[in-house]
Design a protein around this nucleic acid. Structure first.
Length: 507
RNA sequence: GAAUCGGUAGCUCAGCUGGUAGAGCAACGGCCUUUUAAGCCGUGGGUCGAGGGUUCGAGCCCCUCCCGAUUCACCA
């Protein structure tokens, strides 16, 4: 025996031996294709497949994995799982032949093997819709056993699952196994895709253009975050993985498109948590001739529609909370939200007064924080987690928002909103800053903060500033955290449960 | 980055005060003549996350490290 085989587990070794035996008998353990015409769910739901004389019933073909097997001498039942669900198959020696039944099916097939079956539909005396196999073919021999759980109905008819494949590390590292044996996991990801599709449909119906912009950027921008760096060999230059696509989409608005959006993977070189993955998805949308008031109405309409598409209602349960996405949503300026929660009116206070107010509220602050940062800290500490129902927080301090346009009436603030839901930020949007002189000053202020050691401050993007000088129309911009929205709409409390392959340390 | 909890058979887990490593399911062998077998009898299977230490003796105690989960910090 080869050295590699010695290291195999006993179960894997048996399967290698079976594979050899299958080949020796002349069966192909890995045929090239198989013609299917039905799925499990379809068979269970189509009464007409199950009517009339058995000899006259429609012949069907299905394929999938064998999940459980009950052998009773010359006849057996097994459960076949395909993309749509599970269907029982009945197989007899006298229908499929002695070698196929006795040798292939009974001796050489394992749980998890992928097989194809042709036959007709009937109902067993216990009332289960079943496929009576007239032919049986191995489609893929598995060499490693699946972590199949045992599912039993108790006397009340409740499903009880024993030995569920539940270890999170295994589930994330081998997501394909998680998907095979935990059907509810598959549902979460189907919902995620439906959510994105509903948003895409909504924006397409509005006439906006889905576009693609660079992931590898010579200068990163559009957000405050540390980037991942990489290197282009041929040009011998440093490149960054994007932290946002904002500045590129605005260039497209300058170029004359009046509505553009992109579902973008962004990359931020920060810590990981149940709300943060190093790569995550945002959709960003820019619409010309609109402002942030318009954008609030747009986003609440769109998300209300998406929730209805997914759930058929606007009310959904998330953890212990019931959240109602029925529009209109509450809109409240940030300083008013702080006053409502803490009783402190920061609007007329100086920086020092705000700092002492923060200390009274036991919000940790230090001397380096400016007015805007202090307000942001107080909000984050005292207000954000209490906003469960969808709520627009508006009018942010200018220091925190170098890409947003100054508020038309309120000194020191910008026309910006964030959507808060289930205690977390879901969207960030503003009336975009299109005054090139103002934009240059703001980015230079960021550069100053950066030189003082703030490594999340933005860098000056001369190419973007040049573009702005050619004129960007009044524009509203929006970013929605797709992973966090998916968490809420699928009731998952970790971002890892809405990402197929969450980032893990190498084994 | 810190704290807490965890890592034992393919899966889910038990393992007392330190005294020869266990269960269920899965696997393997057998029973098994046609709409339930989700059964019965038997068998095999372990680098106890890794390395070091204490001890006559370590899954268990001590140290270092790796991996994960949770919370905190960080995070527009």
């Amino acid at each position: 025996m080869k050295e590699t085989e010695l290291s195999l587990t006993e179960q894997a070794r048996f399967r290698h031996e079976k594979l050899d035996e299958i080949r020796k008998l002349g069966f192909d353990p890995y045929p090239h294709d198989f013609k299917t015409d039905h799925h499990a769910r379809q068979i269970k739901e189509s009464a007409e497949l199950n009517e009339g004389e058995e000899a006259n019933r429609k012949r069907i073909s299905i394929a999938g994995r064998i999940m459980t097997r009950r052998i009773m001498g010359k006849a057996s039942f097994f459960n076949l799982q395909d993309q749509s669900g599970i269907i029982q198959v009945y197989i007899r020696r006298d229908d499929v032949g002695v070698e196929t039944y006795n040798t292939l099916f009974k001796k050489l097939i394992d749980l998890g093997d992928i097989v194809g079956v042709s036959g007709f539909v009937f109902t067993t005396k216990t009332g289960e819709i079943t496929v009576h196999a007239e032919s049986f073919q191995l489609l893929t021999k598995t060499l490693s056993p699946l972590p199949v759980a045992k599912e039993v109905e108790d006397e009340q008819g409740n499903k009880v699952i024993y030995d569920a494949f539940s270890d999170k590390e295994h589930r994330y590292r081998q997501r394909y196994l998680d998907l095979v044996v935990n059907p509810e996991v598959r549902e979460v990801f189907i919902q995620r895709t439906r959510m994105i599709q509903a948003m895409r449909d909504y924006m397409n119906n509005m006439g906006y253009l889905e576009v693609e912009t660079p992931i590898l950027q010579p200068i990163y921008g559009g957000a405050a975050a540390r980037p991942f760096e990489t290197h282009h060999n041929a040009l011998d230059m440093k490149l960054y993985l994007r932290i946002a696509n904002e500045l590129y989409l605005k260039r497209l608005i300058i170029g004359g498109f009046e509505g553009v959006y992109e579902f973008a993977k962004d990359f931020r070189n920060e810590g990981m948590s149940r709300f943060h993955n190093p790569e995550f998805t945002q959709v960003e949308l820019y619409v010309a001739y609109k402002d942030y008031e318009w954008m609030m109405s747009f986003v609440e309409q769109m998300i209300e529609q998406v929730v209805k598409t997914l759930h058929g209602t606007t009310k959904i349960t998330v953890g212990d909370n019931e959240i109602d996405f029925k529009t209109p949503w509450r809109r409240i300026p940030m300083l008013e939200a702080i006053q409502e929660e803490t009783g402190k009116d920061l609007s007329a206070m100086s920086e020092d007064e705000i700092r002492s107010a923060a200390r009274e509220l036991h919000v940790p602050v230090d001397e380096t924080m400016g007015k805007g940062k202090l307000i942001d800290e107080i909000f984050g500490e005292k207000v954000e987690h209490k906003l469960i129902q969808p709520t627009f927080i508006t009018d942010y301090p200018i220091e925190m928002s170098p890409l947003a346009k100054k508020h038309r009436t309120k000194e020191g603030l910008v026309e910006r909103f964030e959507l808060m839901c289930n205690g977390k930020e879901l969207c960030n949007a503003f009336t975009e800053l299109n005054d090139p002189v103002d934009q240059r000053q703001r980015l230079e202020e960021q550069a100053r903060l950066r030189s003082e050691g703030d490594d999340e401050a933005m860098v000056v993007d001369e190419d973007f500033l040049k573009a702005l000088e050619y004129g960007m129309p009044p524009t509203a911009g929006l970013g929605i955290g797709i992973d966090r929205l998916a968490m809420i709409l699928t009731n998952q409390d970790s971002i890892r449960d809405v990402l197929f392959f969450p980032h893990m340390r190498p084994e």
